[in-house]
C-alpha cells in the first residue's frame, strides 16, 4: 500500500476576480522511501498541492473543494483536527524555499528547533535540547552547541536552510515535502543541501516529495517525476523515461527551453504565449493554446491522464491516439 494516496485534489481560490482553480484534479501516490519530483512553472499549482496536504492553504480565499489525501489510512483532508495534528509536523514535515521568512526571527534557533519535539513527544526540555544538538550536527552545522543559542539573523542563507531541514527532520518524519528548498541558494550551497537531503533520506528511510522548477535538480534526485501545468498533472513517469522519451508536448517544450541542452549562441527554443487564466473555463487541454501540435479538438475535448505503458501516463489527446 502506498504511503500517501492523493485522489482528485482540487484547491481553488475565491477572489474578487473569480474562482482561480490553482489545483484542479490532481491524483498521485508515493511509496515509502521513494522520491517524487513535481516540476512546473510559477502558477502551475505545485506548491499549492504541498500546502493542501499540510493544511497550510490560506482560508479564505483558498478552499479545498474536493478530493482525498490518505496517509497511512488517515484522510488528511477530512480527519479531525486532533488526528491531523498527530500527523502533520510529526510524520509529515515540510520545508520551504525561503529560510529567512520561515524561521521566527524572535526565537533562538534552539527554541524553534525543539518545538516539534516538545509538542509531539513526551520528553523534557533537556532531552529535547540534546536531540536538537544531535540533529544540528547531523545537518552539518559546525560549533552547533554554541550556535544553537543564536538567532536566525546570525546565520547565513545555507545555514538557515540547514536549520530548517533539521527542524523538519527532528521528529523523524516518514514523508518530507520539500518546496523549492534550494532555489534561493547559490549552486555550491545547493549541492551541499541536496547531498544532505539524500543522505538523511537514506538513513531515515523517508519518502520525499521534491517540488522544483529545475529539471537539473530533478534528474539527479528523483525516482519518479510528475509535470504540472495549470493546476493539473500533464505527464508522469520514472525520471529516466521522462527525460529520454517525454510524450506530452509541454514536457518536451520545457526540456527544449533549457540553455545547457542547446547549442551555444543558437536561438533558444521558447514556448509561445503565456499560461492560461485559471479563473476562465478550460474544457480541453490547458496547454492547447501554446502547443505546436494542437488541433481544434484539443481545445474542446476534455482530456485525462492515461497510462500509456505501465508507470508512464500523460494527458495529451493526440499522443494518446498515437498521432504524435
Amino acid at each position: 500500500m502506498p504511503l500517501l494516496t492523493v485522489t482528485d485534489l482540487r484547491t481553488h481560490f475565491h477572489t474578487r476576480n473569480g474562482v482561480y482553480r490553482a489545483v484542479d484534479g490532481v491524483s498521485f501516490t508515493i511509496e515509502r522511501g521513494e522520491t517524487l519530483g513535481i516540476v512546473g512553472e510559477s502558477g502551475s499549482g505545485k506548491s499549492v498541492t504541498g500546502y493542501s496536504l499540510m493544511g497550510l492553504v490560506p482560508t479564505p480565499p483558498g478552499r479545498i473543494e474536493g478530493g482525498t489525501a490518505v496517509f497511512d489510512g488517515v484522510d488528511l483532508l477530512h480527519c479531525t483536527p486532533a488526528e491531523a495534528r498527530a500527523i502533520r509536523g510529526k510524520r509529515v514535515a515540510m520545508i520551504f524555499q525561503d529560510p529567512m521568512t520561515s524561521l521566527n526571527p524572535y526565537l533562538r534557533i534552539a527554541d524553534q528547533l525543539i518545538e516539534p519535539l516538545l509538542i509531539h513527544q513526551d520528553i523534557g526540555r533537556a532531552e529535547a535540547l540534546r536531540r536538537g544538538l544531535e540533529m544540528l550536527v547531523a545537518v552539518g552545522i559546525n560549533d552547533a552547541a554554541r550556535r544553537m543559542h543564536l538567532y536566525p539573523h546570525e546565520f547565513s542563507g545555507g545555514m538557515r536552510q540547514r536549520v530548517m531541514i533539521a527542524m523538519a527532520l527532528i521528529t523523524r518524519p516518514e514523508l518530507l515535502i520539500a518546496d523549492e528548498p534550494t532555489t534561493a541558494l547559490d549552486v555550491t550551497v545547493q549541492a551541499q543541501i541536496l547531498e544532505l537531503i539524500q543522505k538523511l533520506q537514506r538513513e531515515l528511510g523517508m519518502a520525499v516529495i521534491f517540488i522544483t522548477h529545475d529539471l537539473g535538480v530533478i534528474s539527479g534526485l528523483c525516482d519518479r517525476v510528475q509535470v504540472m501545468y495549470a493546476g493539473r498533472i500533464v505527464e508522469t513517469a520514472d525520471t529516466r523515461t521522462l527525460f529520454k522519451a517525454p510524450r506530452h508536448p509541454y514536457t518536451r517544450a520545457l526540456q527544449r527551453s533549457i540553455p545547457s541542452l542547446q547549442q551555444k549562441g543558437a536561438e533558444l527554443y521558447t514556448i509561445q504565449g503565456m499560461p492560461p487564466d485559471l479563473s476562465k473555463p478550460l474544457p480541453g487541454c490547458p496547454f492547447a493554446a501554446r502547443c505546436e501540435f494542437a488541433l481544434p479538438k484539443c481545445v474542446e475535448t476534455p482530456v485525462h491522464l492515461r497510462e500509456e505503458v505501465p508507470g508512464h501516463s500523460h494527458a495529451c489527446l493526440r499522443a494518446q491516439l498515437g498521432e504524435i
Binding site: 545547493q190 549541492a191 541536496l194 537539473g216
Partner: peptide
C-alpha cells in the same frame, strides 16, 4: 571547477554518475 561541478545536469544518466566537488563551509 567546484562551481561548474555544482550545476545540476538535466540528464539522469550523467547526473547520477558524475563526480561532484562539494565545497565545505560558506
Amino acid at each position: 571547477r567546484a562551481l561548474v561541478s555544482a550545476i545540476p545536469n538535466a540528464n539522469p544518466d550523467t547526473e547520477r554518475t558524475r563526480q561532484r566537488i562539494v565545497l565545505p563551509g560558506d
